[in-house]
Amino acid sequence: MITFTLNGRVVETDAPATVRLLDLIRDDFELIGTKEGCGEGECGACSVFVNNLVQNSCLIPIGSIAGANIQTIEGIIETEQFKILDESYSVAGGVQCGYCIPGMIMASAALLSKNPHPSETEIREGISGNLCRCTGYNMIVDAINLAAQKGDGIWQKK
């Protein structure tokens, strides 16, 4: 039995230790905001927070997350940070098909909580592990920039 915290709630599972965290959260916990893209850690669509660090859930065997604090996109949706990102992505036109967006939001939140005023280069570096096939990234970079300005002072808060 593996016990961990998922979006603030202590949960347990008897799934085998090799099951990918991505499959567990989507299939067993029905949190389908986290997407599967490449399944090889190259596209970032499956990004989640593990102990507050953004990681690719497609590469995580659940046996290694016993006791960890996992947050998915659903787990941050009520936060002030998410609201700022949500608004900024809308205003900047950063969302087209939307498939990459949960992962992009996780990467954006991870970047801003570490570096609340990133340069354009730092923004591009921050989302370098996330692929988007629609926007060409410029609008996403604008969205993060906007979120940094609008959310001044809120990113360091937990």
Partner: peptide, 8 residues
Amino acid sequence: AAPAIRNR
């Protein structure tokens, strides 16, 4: 890699 892989 990228931040998410570097975290792991």
